[in-house]
Design a protein around this nucleic acid. Sequence first.
DNA 1: GGGCAAATGATAACAGTGTCAACATGAGTT
DNA 2: AACTCATGTTGACACTGTTATCATTTGCCC
Lengths: 196, 196
Amino acid sequence: MTKKKDGYHHGDLRSALVKNGLKLVADTEDGDVGLREVARETGVSATAVYRHFPDKDAFLRALAGAGFEMLYDAQAKAAAGRAAKDEGFRAIGQAYVHFAIDHPPLFRLMSRYMPSADDFREGRLAKGNRAGRLLTDYLAELLPGEENESKRQVAAIQAIALVHGLAQLVLGGQIPKDRSLIDAAVDEFGSWHHES
Amino acid sequence: MTKKKDGYHHGDLRSALVKNGLKLVADTEDGDVGLREVARETGVSATAVYRHFPDKDAFLRALAGAGFEMLYDAQAKAAAGRAAKDEGFRAIGQAYVHFAIDHPPLFRLMSRYMPSADDFREGRLAKGNRAGRLLTDYLAELLPGEENESKRQVAAIQAIALVHGLAQLVLGGQIPKDRSLIDAAVDEFGSWHHES
DNA sequence: GGGCAAATGATAACAGTGTCAACATGAGTT
DNA sequence: AACTCATGTTGACACTGTTATCATTTGCCC
């Protein structure tokens, strides 16, 4: 139980649900929480959730969105102070994996509700776009003079695939949770493109 | 309904459940099937499944295992005939992503039940190890004379992270389902390490 | 301030799920 | 032929997401 302004109406139930949802997600394995469970934790009836979210899917998407906000903050903080663009790129790439390691269930949830490329283009995003855009933006500045556009697109795809794959496989236990190893993997990728 | 040898006993229920399970998984979005659903499809009572699998988790793990067998076959076929080791490496890497594209829900299920590094080392795998081992084995032959062992480990991690990340992000819609683009991303990675 | 509509909450119920305990049936062995 | 054990069934329990219906409160208008 958290935050309850006693009385029939809650005051700000929606954000209370999200906050408790995030807390409960952290205690799960796969990042899935039940609506009834979070309602119970919030001290409210099960169906009250439906006044703020159309269904469970929408609620989990909201949780994932909050997670992307946290990720964006972490990446921004990691990149701050890095004057050199390539250092900034490596920093936010590593921050991506570190975030996954620090919040395994939340990251798994986020992976399931990650905005698609279409969501990006058509601007139908709240704010969760920023996390993903950071990486590709840095990469765009990092590779200004590539021969052709397609080569740059390939490099961008490699970058996000590498970083996302690292995070996914570390959480799955296929890659050792070794921070220096992970940082090395990201660093070397960055240097390939920068030193060439 | 498939395969039913009519009568109280089924004959080979376990494999029938797996077969129908795989079929049903293919029709889902996230690669999750209900035990009752597959039991219904197989024409058997819901609890009969428990005579062959301790719980739902074990059943889904069996489905994932069957998926890894399919993946291994696809990778072996892709690598066959490639004399050059680096070509073989690229082929199985691309086959990994192609498999994901061809079987989205199954691949998502497999991602959730992917054998961990510990499973590998301690040899507690049925046969699903082969799919993962293929990639790293090729990579080991590909990089015989790297300066130190740690550099080789970093390269191995980069390879599987790149390939797994590509698969994951294509299925999520973050990367366009463009086969030539994906092949280019894998090819270029292979050439980096080979030409150096 | 009184009254009313809309927003927000609660209750009851339905269909569906994973799982367990108890029982039924058939196959294989001696 | 009888017994045993693996295999399949029935019934039930606790739980879930979701809907329909009813209750309360807030905010606004006169």
